[in-house]
Simulated assay, not measured.
Amino acid sequence: MESLGKEKIFSEARRRAEDPELPLISVCVVTYNHRPYLSDCLDGILKQEGDFRLEILIHDDASEDGARELIEDYERRFPEIIKPILQTENQYSKGKTNITGIFNIPRARGEFLAVMDGDDYYCDTRKLEKQIRCFQRERELVFCFHSAKVLLPDGSFGNSALMRPYRGSRILSGAELVDRRGGAPFASFLFRREILETLPDYYFDCPVGDRPLEWIAASCGKSFYLDEPLSVYRFQHSGSWTREQGEGEREKKQRRYREAMEKSFLEFDRESGGRFHPEIERAIGRLRFLSDVNLRDFPEIYRRGNREFYRELSLRDRFFLQFERRLPGLYRAMQKRFGQGIG
């Protein structure tokens, strides 16, 4: 995929000049059974301050908890902004895993495109404006993202390092983005829409929607990381991906996820002509290591070959891993008592 040239930027400016009613930002929201959280999500978008128009493109995947009715109410109140797709059959269960790219991105009209899940929300009313300013300062940027607060099911805020991949705001090369350490919140993503007009096969084959979008950005130009927690990421809440992965056949899900992600990384490696091959190899190694951490495979966690990735963990995470490894009974008792505040 080629870098976004200046001519494309200028053509987008001409398009907007010809139709001033076009939104500057299209916010793509995907939701399924997020009724308890959806008002926070939509209100956080609607409260955004700045000199720009926006549209909210919502895809509801046949929710069964009243989310559809809530979306219809918002559409009645904000018909010029809220643009829903309300499915009657669940599309994810039919194998359409990356809903954003299938249903929302193709109908986006904005110069910039934001993405998020319906259980997360913006916690800064100038979140989008701050990101737009980054694009205005650095014309070669194609992607901007930031850190997030981590909200636990008990209402407290958890380990902020979970969604803070870097320390300090800065421009990132494509290689740095591919070999990213730590989580990047989906609700922080803002792209130039042009780079997502044609989505590669690896996007649709990937088991998650965030990483392949980052790979596309890495192939197209520079990115900017804004080291401010401008959104909130719900961790282990009902209906969340993190909760779903931890329930039922946990080990089987982890291994299936790891295998699918490795396959997607290798597809991206082929698509990019090996341009990021060293970074992809390291990212796959990190993926395997973090899977071992999630499964508490201590022999693998402390294997000599994983020392690089172990050192990337926060001191807090390393402490609790050692605690659980050496005193598993006490660790489980404390986790039962204090919940997600431990480990």
Rank of each mutant, 00 (worst) to 15 (best):
M1I: 03
S3K: 13
G5P: 02
K6N: 08
E7Y: 08
F10Q: 10
F10M: 08
E12K: 06
R15G: 13
R16E: 03
E18A: 14
P20G: 10
E21F: 03
L22V: 12
P23E: 06
H34K: 11
Y37Q: 10
L38G: 05
L38F: 13
D40L: 11
C41R: 03
D43K: 14
G44R: 06
E49G: 02
E55W: 02
I58G: 04
I58A: 07
D60C: 08
D61W: 07
G66R: 10
R68E: 15
R68I: 15
L70D: 03
L70W: 04
I71F: 10
E72V: 09
E72F: 03
Y74I: 11
Y74E: 09
F78M: 11
E80F: 10
K83C: 08
P84M: 08
P84Q: 08
Q87T: 01
S93K: 13
S93V: 12
K96F: 11
T97P: 00
N98H: 13
I99R: 08
I102H: 09
I102P: 01
F103L: 14
F103E: 07
N104V: 02
I105E: 04
E111R: 12
F112K: 00
A114L: 11
V115Y: 05
D124K: 12
R126K: 11
K127S: 13
K127V: 09
E129R: 12
Q136T: 11
E138A: 05
R139E: 14
E140V: 02
V142S: 03
F143P: 01
F143T: 04
F145E: 05
K149D: 15
G158R: 08
A161D: 10
L162V: 14
G168S: 09
R170V: 04
S173L: 09
G183A: 14
G183C: 07
A184S: 15
F186K: 03
I195E: 02
E197I: 05
D201F: 04
D205W: 01
P207Q: 09
P212A: 07
P212K: 03
F224K: 03
F224T: 01
L226E: 10
L230K: 08
R234K: 13
S238R: 12
E244G: 07
Q245S: 10
Q245M: 15
Q254Y: 12
Y257P: 01
M261G: 02
S264L: 01
F268Q: 00
R270L: 15
R275F: 06
P278Y: 12
P278C: 07
P278A: 10
A283S: 13
G285F: 07
L287E: 05
R288P: 01
L290D: 03
L295C: 13
R296A: 06
R296G: 00
E300G: 02
I301P: 06
R307N: 08
E308W: 05
R311H: 11
E312C: 09
E312I: 00
R316W: 14
L321I: 14
E324G: 00
P328F: 05
L330H: 03
Y331A: 05
M334P: 01
K336C: 00
K336P: 00
F338D: 00
Q340I: 01
Q340F: 08
Q340T: 08
G341R: 13
G343P: 04
